[in-house]
Computed example of a mutant assay.
Amino acid sequence: MDVLITGGHGVVGTAITDHLGDDEAYEFTLLDVDPPAEDTPHDSVVADVRDYDAIRPHFEGKDAVVHLALVPGTGGPDSRELGWSKPQSDNLEALHNVYEAAVDAALDSIVFASSNHAVGMVEVRNAPEVYHDAGVKVDHTEPHRPDSRYGLTKSYGEDLGRLAAESHGIRFYALRIGSVRAPEYDHPYGDAERGVEDGKWERGSDAYEEQVARLKGLWQSRRDLAHLVDCCLRDDSVEWDQFYGVSENSRRWLDDLDHARETVGYDPQDAGEEWDAPPE
């Protein structure tokens, strides 16, 4: 299967190629606005997803696209600003370009990196209790409740994908990813430890422990993320659907792993509660 990954050199893109790159079932092409920082065994092309004519040739002959690229400057997932911005418009244009190119090139499927922030107001309205298994749960049918302009962009991408699926017959998979981290922080203490390194708090402080509690609910290990993408790429039954990108975390509030198991066969191998300290 020939797969194009937009934003392929980022944290999520490298999780996919780190764990699926040796799978003979796949040939990956990594599309990014900059060349890779280091050598990669995969084909790599430089193009900007805001430029349709620049990206369209790279969709030719592909079976699927995994759309990860995000134009920076949308305000971020922690911003509650309501005003519009040029980067926000650029992201919507990029979504249209990628989806249009996928349809025009007759790809079989689109896998879209959506986000927990598409329903993130659930967390905002229930924090910090939600980090401690307070009984707040949402399933894959939860209506969009974006917590930011970033979440709004992800919600729009899900709706546009459904339109592409129902109007043009391309299969669409929205992955409402929880928290996938770079290899050095790929554990539920990752955010807390990074905060220590950045001087934001001390290890063992209340702020540190709250970051651990949060990530033990939202964490998706890099190998579980790659496995979920693999499940979607191999699937041929879904018209359009959304799945939560989390590991087998007992305190998760994005609580619909059974839907992903039954629909595409997602079987996560990691769990936040298996960790009681950061790696040494």
Rank of each mutant, 00 (worst) to 15 (best):
V136W: 05
T29N: 05
G199P: 11
A102G: 14
A192W: 07
G178V: 02
F28W: 07
P57R: 07
D23R: 13
D235N: 15
D23Q: 14
R171Y: 11
P77F: 11
L228Q: 15
D34T: 05
K216T: 11
P35L: 02
P143K: 03
E274F: 10
V33E: 01
H168E: 14
I177F: 12
V71Y: 02
R125L: 11
W84A: 02
Q269K: 10
R194V: 10
L254S: 07
G195H: 11
P143Q: 03
F172W: 10
D48G: 01
C232P: 10
S114L: 09
A106D: 15
T263K: 07
A174H: 07
D23T: 10
E123F: 04
T40R: 07
R171K: 10
D241T: 03
E273W: 14
H132E: 12
H132W: 08
V196G: 14
D191C: 09
E129G: 15
D43T: 06
L68R: 01
E100Q: 14
A207Q: 13
R181H: 14
D255A: 13
I110W: 09
E38C: 00
D186W: 08
A127E: 13
S247A: 12
A15Q: 00
R80D: 06
S179D: 14
W253F: 13
V33I: 09
P36E: 02
Y150A: 03
D53I: 01
E193N: 13
D255T: 08
V264T: 06
F112I: 05
R214V: 06
D2V: 05
L215S: 06
K216R: 13
L4V: 01
R222C: 00
R145N: 09
H259T: 06
T6P: 04
V138T: 10
V130N: 07
